[in-house]
């Protein structure tokens, strides 16, 4: 009797445990929160908040104003000296690659600083210049207030942690926002070809 009851209890526990694990891992597809974020956004696009932003030329803008075109968004801090400094050159490359759709106002690139206290318009403009900004279609901006920043990071699923030597480490990526203002994909930060291809395909269809 006791053996049978134990067998029954074990089977029930196993079923319940596997069910919990299946939910937690998006059906055994995601074991890290980065993979989970990508799957979740791909399957359930999220609306971007209309956070007010200040751009490198000192102007105000917001996601609301940028609607109507495809946006490629990355999160940066301009002092970055490690791998994230390459994000800038990736965006300059995208700017060159997507010059056509950018000129037609169908695409824009947007770099948002998660270190707004240090990244004022001057620092943002300097960052773009350093990486070879070609002048149109690439906006660098910082959230106007702390609450807006927190909301943006939360919605995009960006986590920036202090690296212990004055900078940050963050889950860098290229986020795709569709013309309706929904985050529809998170792509590798160092794969501009994939980002350009995604936008091209979307414009064709």
């Amino acid at each position: 009797m006791k053996v049978l009851r134990t067998l029954l209890a074990s089977l029930l526990l196993l079923a319940a445990g596997l069910a919990v694990l299946a939910v937690a891992t998006h059906g055994f597809r995601a074991y890290t929160s980065e993979t989970a974020r990508r799957i979740d956004i791909r399957e359930h696009p999220r609306t971007v908040p209309s956070t007010p932003l200040q751009t490198a030329d000192g102007q105000r803008t917001s996601f609301g104003e940028l609607r109507g075109r495809w946006l490629l968004v990355d999160f940066i801090y301009t002092r970055c000296l490690t791998y994230c400094s390459v994000q800038g050159s990736e965006f300059a490359r995208l700017q060159q690659e997507l010059a056509g759709p950018i000129a037609a106002d169908k695409v824009a690139l947007l770099s948002i600083s998660f270190d707004p206290a240090r990244d004022d318009p001057t620092a943002l403009a300097d960052y773009q210049r350093r990486h070879g900004d070609r002048g149109t279609g690439w906006i660098a901006a910082r959230p106007v207030d702390r609450a807006g920043l927190a909301e943006l990071l939360h919605r995009f699923g960006v986590v920036a942690v202090p690296d212990g030597i004055g900078g940050f480490v963050h889950n860098a990526a290229i986020a795709v926002v569709d013309p309706g203002g929904r985050i529809v994909a998170i792509l590798d930060w160092n794969d501009w070809q994939a980002a350009a291809g995604y936008v091209r395909r979307s414009l064709r269809s």
Binding site: K2, V3, R5, T6, L8, A9, S10, L13
Partner: peptide
């Protein structure tokens, strides 16, 4: 009674 040899 449901935990024979601690297995469950």
């Amino acid at each position: 009674a449901w935990n024979h040899r601690g297995i469950s």
